[in-house]
Design a protein around this nucleic acid. Structure first.
Lengths: 212, 212, 212, 212
DNA sequence: TTTTAACCGAGACGGTACGTCACGTCTTGTG
DNA sequence: CACAAGACGTGACGTACCGTCTCGGTTAAAA
């Protein structure tokens, strides 16, 4: 695909330009949103040229996707590497769920949330882009949920894996639905609701320690 | 606001133009998607002028929203009117759920599904579009779910409304998540899974007639 | 070719834009020359959009040619109209020649000369453009020379048309050669040289009144 | 200015690159003309790098000029050397003129003519290019004309140098005018016309041997 | 019946961003 | 050092839509 990359001839790409352009992309994205983001603005902010941008990315969509991915680079799974869980182990299932949801909600309430929304909306246009976005957000969420369920099984808090699959399926759906469709806010009450009314029942964990 | 409408002078609008333009909008939307849809293309296909389009709609978003709404016009609740449920009453909760999900899935697997994806994914860019789309799709789904739960309560199949709210929240989320994010297909197995593993447990309906 | 022009439908072109754009073209041409002239600069100066420029002209070349032509619009012969001679009748052949050459030289030494040079150089690229430029400059010059020769014949200063053709051929060649190739200046000495050493001999007019 | 040339250190320039690049320049020039000729295209065709081109020439203009000059390298006068006339000595003025014009016309009708047109028309944009082109084509022509006139004087065919200067001025002008402006073809009739109706009269040679 | 005012189609208008291309320079690895 | 390869910043290109604005020509209610 790229002769220079294979044969190692010619002036090598200045990798620092990638970083500068992606950084500029995130800035512009935060300032004006996906729709009003222009390649010219990104290039100007990165003190790069449009040609350099187009040499590396096919257009606005792929540029923005990669920019988003740089926020949590560890979330993109490396082939063969052990999936990394970004959610802390608190010692109990309910504690893990609350901590995990809080962690996710925190990120969604920050710039990253707005950026995710901006890019999510672009995925229908480009299947490749959809796959990349899904890996960076949705699949990552599912992996984290799976790890939480496994921890609870290991602790003996759950006695069957039956509900785990459903939980892994439903929780991210609830989260992204609120983010992308209903648009309702993420607050502490919502977190408690998701954990106690949705996650724990689906997991078959009926003794609620923290909600007598 | 509209002198002609008030004073009733001048040439009246040709209402047939609305239909032609909305029809053209749906065609273009299906052909190239929301992003590549242009007002010029819609006007050309409808043999209308751009001025006529802009006389009636403020821009692409509102035009597309109204076009989408024409697909299931009865779903847009008229103020003061009783919300209409498009899901049939089969006599049992599980039957209602299966029938309702099948109905929805059928629509998603048709052109309407593609159109919804096209527009849904664009809603983050335009709050007005988001609200309109939500009313036409998501809120409608929630209404239908609510009615199903109420029917079951009336039949005595449920003895508490506790799970109903959660059910109303989760089921549409699952559906839209699959449509917009995971992209997995909608098939009969998925419908059964949603009904038996998610909906009924959340509703607190543990006796499953069809799944002993 | 142009539906609007034929069927007279749609918003008619604002002819005043043509004038503004051509005027702006001449200004920019004078300021930075043909090579550094950009369509953007012309459009900006004319307070027009690039689309408007490209709607009327195919590119820089044709735009500039037409702009040049506006300088001496009377020189473009109207079909069927009598060719108009821009050179004055002084009463004698030598006087006519001196006056005619002075008139031409005067124009070449003004902005028009620079503009002509600028555009002449573009003609090799575009045959159509070459034809237009030739009509506006070279053919016009030949016409004027022909009229001068006819006047002299009518006055009895010449007794044969033999030299007239050659004169009509040579004099413009000498002029344009100096303008485009040798680049030597046009001064009074050059004019006298052309008239007395080239034009009159070729015309077979050997009695030189003013040069005993 | 050039350390390597002075100190004779480092890798010496590969002189064969010059030839390859100039050859490629002529090819590209013939294929697409001066305006569409790009340094990238030349470098690619010569399998050279742009850096190598720019190391030797300042830009498109000087590159093309030198390429053109390679066509008739003997025409570029070496300082101090006797100017060389490329027109044969036939023994008579009229014979010399016919032979000289035929020689020139022959070259103009070949590739060289097209190249000259391509570059000539671009010279107004670049004074350096203009000077170089003039030396390679126009001045060369004038030199040849001067030599022809001198031969005739030596033979006694002319008895005054008065017309020689005018002849030297007019003949190249007629030639280049036809090539660059009027675009009329060069044929045998034109050659005879130029010799008998323009050149010989201006030279004051009224006995025409070959045209009784 | 005439007037009036808004409608209609077509399409020109000033803008803005697009993605491409060529420029002349710079930066690698290899000889 | 020269060289091939090719990335770099720059800036113009010509195109495509945007939303607005004129045109000439209906169309129907008001005068």
């Amino acid at each position: 695909m790229n002769l220079a990359a294979i044969k190692n001839v010619g002036r090598p790409r200045d990798e620092s330009r990638d970083a500068a352009i992606l950084e500029a992309t995130l800035q512009v994205l935060g300032e004006v949103g996906y729709d009003r983001l222009t390649i010219d603005a990104v290039a100007a902010k990165a003190k790069a040229s449009k040609a350099t941008v187009y040499r590396r990315w096919t257009g606005k969509a792929s540029l923005v996707v990669e920019a988003i991915q740089t926020i949590n680079p560890h979330k993109v799974p490396v082939a063969g590497a052990e999936p990394e869980c970004i959610w802390p182990d608190t010692g109990s299932l309910r504690g893990d769920l609350l901590a995990g949801c809080r962690n996710f909600v925190e990120r969604l309430n920050s710039d990253e949330g707005r950026l995710m929304v901006a890019v999510m909306t672009a995925q229908a246009r480009d299947p490749e882009l959809a796959t990349a976005m899904r890996a960076a957000t949705y699949d990552d969420k599912r992996r984290s949920c799976r790890i939480l369920a496994d921890r609870a099984l290991a602790r003996g808090e759950l006695n069957s894996t039956a509900g785990a699959d459903t939980f892994v399926e439903v929780l991210p759906a609830i989260m992204f639905n609120r983010l992308l469709i209903s648009g309702e806010p993420f607050d502490e009450a919502f977190i408690a609701h998701v954990v106690d009314d949705i996650a724990l029942p689906l997991l078959g964990h009926h003794e609620r320690a923290g909600k007598p």
